[in-house]
Simulated assay, not measured.
Amino acid sequence: MDMEEYLSIGKAAKILGVTPKIMRLLTKRQVGFGTRCVVYARVSSAKQSRDGNLERQKERLLEEAQKRGYDPVLVVAEQASGINDKRRGLWRVLHLAEKRGFDVLLIEFPDRLARFGYRYLTEYLRAFDVRVETARDMPPASFEEELTRDLITILTVFSARLYGRRSKGFRKKITDTIQEHHEKGGESPFGHSHEDPDSAAP
């Protein structure tokens, strides 16, 4: 009798004398057999970490790695903003990729890896034969709240830099301009000769 080249899960389970459920698990293990995986979990706030969100995210990813038959060689769980490019955990992942220490980076969804520049990171990892896989297609309901928090962080950083410049060279430039107008007998460029340059500047 000719043997079929491919067998269904049910037929293969019957031949091996195991249940179809066990056969499915064996099949999944075979698909990912030998695949070295890094699990990367991230939350942006200390509150999320305290509430157990980070731990639960890590556990979900480890469970997903097991389902896919991957062998986790590193688990990174960190609390940091998605726009922070100085994350220790992320840099640890990148350095391990450079050493070709794993094959798959498993994250819950793209935003966990980076708020901005996700494609740059995936292309960089691909250069070291590392592929990025996501466990979920859609972010959780708190996505909008976290995005708002990161946008506020961006505004805070740029505002600090702007006011930092103003407190030095920028402030001096405004003061010199006002003084020059006074010496020429002209009106202040801001409309009132006694106006504070800090409050008048945009």
Rank of each mutant, 00 (worst) to 15 (best):
K11N: 12
E4I: 06
Q48S: 12
H181S: 12
I178G: 02
V132E: 04
A200Q: 01
E78C: 07
I9W: 02
D150K: 00
S199V: 13
H194G: 09
Y6S: 11
L54W: 07
N84W: 02
R136D: 12
K58F: 03
L26Y: 13
D198P: 01
S167H: 09
K47V: 14
Q57K: 10
M1S: 12
L54F: 08
Q66Y: 06
D71T: 11
I107L: 03
G169T: 14
V93I: 13
V38N: 02
M23L: 13
R131H: 07
R24V: 14
R126K: 10
Y70S: 02
D198I: 11
L155Y: 15
F109C: 09
G186S: 13
I22Q: 12
T27W: 04
I154E: 12
T177H: 05
P197D: 01
T177R: 14
Y120T: 11
R112N: 06
V18A: 08
G169S: 10
D51H: 06
E78R: 02
I15Y: 09
Y124V: 08
R24L: 14
R171E: 10
T175R: 09
L90I: 04
D176S: 12
A41I: 00
K86H: 14
G186L: 15
G101A: 08
R87A: 07
D71C: 08
K99A: 14
D111Q: 07
P110Q: 05
E64S: 13
A200F: 02
M138H: 14
A201C: 13
G10L: 12
G191K: 05
L147D: 03
D51V: 04
L74C: 08
K58H: 06
L106S: 04
K14M: 08
R115C: 04
